[in-house]
Amino acid sequence: MSDYNFAYLDEQTKRMIRRAILKGLAVPGYQVPFASREMPMPYGWGTGGVQVSAATLTPEDTFKVIDQGADDTTNAVSIRKFFERTAGVATTEETEKASVIQTRHRIPEAELTEDQILVYQVPIPEPLRFLEPRETETRKMHALQEYGLMHVKLYEDISQHGAIATSYAYPVKVSDRYVMDPSPIPKFDNPKMEMAAIQLFGAGREQRIYAVPPYTKVVSLDFEDYPFEASKADHPCDLCAAEDSYLDEVILDDAGNRMFVCSDTDYCRSRREAGHVGRLGEEAAA
C-alpha cells in the first residue's frame, strides 16, 4: 500500500474539516471544535495546520510552508515534502507564487491576495486560558462577550512592566465580536491580519479550528491611554537593508557579534535579487 488518498486524509475527514472551516468563516474568530485525527507527526508539531491544509488543498494548488518565516527549517521541509508525497501538489518557496501557505508563528511580509489562503499552526487556541483555566467558563465568556478578564491581563502587564508586555500571541477582537488568539505571531504581524486572503487557524491537539474571512476587521486589544504598537527592533536587515520587516537576531561568534536578518527568508531573497544590499550583504557577496 504505497498510494495515499489525496493529501493523506480520507474524504469523510476532509468533509468534516471543511464543514468546520465553513462554520469558522461564517463566525469569524469563533473556535469551532473538530475531530482532530491521528497524523504522522506528534501533537505539538503542526498537526492542526496540516489537517487544515490537507482539507483545503486541491491538485491545482501551489503550496508553501514556512516556520518562523523560514522555508528551510527541518519542520517546514518535512511538511512540504509530506504534501509533495501525499498530494502531489506543486510546492514553492516564493510567496507570490503560492496559493496555499502554511505558517508557524509568522505572517509573510509580502502582501497576500484574494487568491491565497494562509493556514496558521496554533498551539493554544483559547486566549483566556491562562487567566481562566476552566473550559466551561471560557466558553460562557465567549458566548456572552464577557471579555473584561482579557483587559485584566493587559492591565497587569502595564502595572508590572509599564507597558503591555505581550509581544507575541497578542489578543485581537475580530469583527467586533470574538476575542481571538492569533497564534504566536509577533505583535508586529497583527496589523497584517486585515488582509485580502482567507486566514484559517488549526489547533490539532486542542481540536479547534477558527477563521478570519478576507477584509475582516481585526483590532488588537489595548487601553485608550496605552494604545497598541506593532513594534520591532529598530535595525534594518543586515542582508537586504529592509526597514519594514520583522527581524531575527543571529549571534555570529563568541565575541558578541550579531546580525539582524529578515525572518521571512523569501522576502529577504527577493529583495536581494532586486539589488538591495544590507550592511553585511556586501561582505557576503564579496
Binding site: G148, L149, Y155, E224
Partner: peptide, 13 residues
C-alpha cells in the same frame, strides 16, 4: 479593576 473593565472601561489611568 476587573468589574470596571468588564463593563467597558478602557482607560488604564
Amino acid at each position: 479593576g476587573e468589574r470596571l473593565m468588564a463593563v467597558g472601561d478602557r482607560h488604564y489611568g
